[in-house]
Design a protein around this nucleic acid. Structure first.
Lengths: 203, 203
DNA sequence: CGAAAACGTTAACAAAAGATAAGGATTTGT
DNA sequence: ACAAATCCTTATCTTTTGTTAACGTTTTCG
């Protein structure tokens, strides 16, 4: 994957949020960086400030904490999604988790500094405000559903939900089961038991 | 509380996000509504589309689902905070929960229709994009922490966290304990046990 | 003011989840 | 290709939570 092709893919996906005309794109593009992350390399580590928001052109990443020496995976992002330790990026305070490439991953990234520069740029400011708004709103909606599921559902129900939605099936297919367990808020052993329970009940 | 005073309070708080000059405020203000909710009245009910985002001038609200006939409280908002079934408001799809006034509550509200009109208004569009961005980012950060706590912490740890932060103590002081239990993702009985455990251990 | 409803605690039991360890299958890396 | 590491399942035991019900207290509301 070369940088120009990555930019073209990003530009196409960006249209969901804002559509730049040629003149705007020429101003916009130099603010972008092209980054390649080898498998198992970190996009961000705890204690450091997240300087970039990334768009995944190819590959995938996982978010995880380390607690009592154990890695606890909380989230995943795939192709055509954005990736950042968003709180850290927005507030420029240290991240509390890792983000790690699950496979060789190509990203288009925007630094916080460039983001601020574009917001202050008369030619781009308006559309960048809109981009930032729609991006935050998109993740807000995901999180609202996620919090809601922790409040109102059992781990078993959360697992069944995952089976029933398309993005859930993508996660189930592409991720090892112990990542999914932590994503659901339980241990791998417990998820294995839940799966057995479901198998037996529906046999 | 009269409408003008409410608007003045809202305007002051709004400065955290955007600062309107006099000319802009004169255009902006007519898009606002002033709403009074009597205690126990609903701001939104499941199955209906949330048409407004509100700013709480006075009072407080709780968010809750009904599951198996039981009310499960997932969130609270207080003075100088915003309130909306945000996913429903943004996507104009039916809400899945109630939002109910915990006491007589005064709100400044903006309808989705007026929001769109302001975003399209050349005089207000830019600042409204910014307002929407910063508001969404603010809630995104809250949600990120909340999801993270469900993934990495036990109910007991979440309760101790609540004791240690100022907004948590406000919740603990103002809310009945069974609301807090559901907010933490557990039953009221279980929270009572956790509290006893903590009392005994720290005696 | 007084009856009814709502609240918090506790108890007893059932169900589920956590912790630890073992074993077999699969994958990884050199 | 082979040794090491990772992964999933299963078993056992402990801890925690859920469920239901009872009881005394406090709050609400007509």
């Amino acid at each position: 994957m070369d940088e120009l092709k990555a930019q073209a893919i990003f530009r196409e996906q960006l249209k969901k949020y804002v559509d730049f005309n040629e003149a705007e794109w020429i101003v916009f593009a130099p603010y972008l960086s092209f980054v390649t992350l080898k498998k198992k390399k970190n996009f961000i580590e705890p204690g450091t400030v997240c300087k970039d928001v990334g768009f995944i052109v190819k590959g995938s990443v996982r978010y995880f904490h380390v607690k009592d020496g154990e890695e606890i995976t909380g989230y995943f992002s795939f192709e055509n999604e954005y990736v950042s330790s968003y709180k850290s990026f927005l507030t420029q305070t240290p991240s509390v988790h890792y983000i790690q490439a699950l496979e060789d991953t190509d990203l288009i990234t925007i630094t916080q500094k460039n983001m601020q520069a574009m917001l202050a740029n008369p030619m781009l400011g308006y559309k960048m405000e809109r981009f930032g708004r729609l991006l935050a709103e998109h993740y807000l909606i995901c999180y609202e559903d996620r919090v809601s599921s922790f409040i109102t559902k059992t781990p078993e129900e959360r697992y069944l939900d995952l089976l029933s939605i398309s993005t859930g099936r993508e996660i189930l297919q592409r991720m090892p089961q112990h990542y999914i367990a932590h994503f659901l808020g339980i241990t791998p052993v417990s998820l294995s038991r839940i799966r057995r329970r479901i198998m037996v009940e529906s046999k």
